[in-house]
């Protein structure tokens, strides 16, 4: 059965997604990256020429390579695969 659009809660509050809808695809939940990261206190920068996204937070900084669908954390030095796709012209 297709699932509804999920509700995302950050700590004790419902995340206001400004009218966009997170989705669940193959049991994985996806959300708009900028809104989600801002709610977690992180900043998001998109490097158009490298086609990468950099997430800056107090905990760690993460660089996402959109073409390769991989992410690298700069402090904890981990690399992991990450699903990222365009939705209505936004990540």
């Amino acid at each position: 059965m297709e699932s509804d659009y999920p509700i995302i809660i950050v700590n004790d509050d419902v995340l206001n997604l400004n009218g966009s809808f997170p989705e669940i695809i193959n049991n994985t939940a996806y959300a708009p990256i900028r809104i989600l990261m801002n709610a977690l206190g992180a900043q998001v920068y998109w490097n158009e020429s490298l086609n990468s996204i950099t997430i800056v937070s107090a905990f760690d900084n993460i660089v996402i390579n959109i073409n390769e669908k991989t992410a690298v954390t700069l402090i904890h030095k981990t690399t992991f695969p990450i699903d990222v796709f365009m939705y209505n012209d936004f990540y």
Partner: peptide, 8 residues
């Protein structure tokens, strides 16, 4: 859109 679990 990005998968929530990994990233968070």
């Amino acid at each position: 859109m990005i998968s929530i679990r990994n990233l968070t």
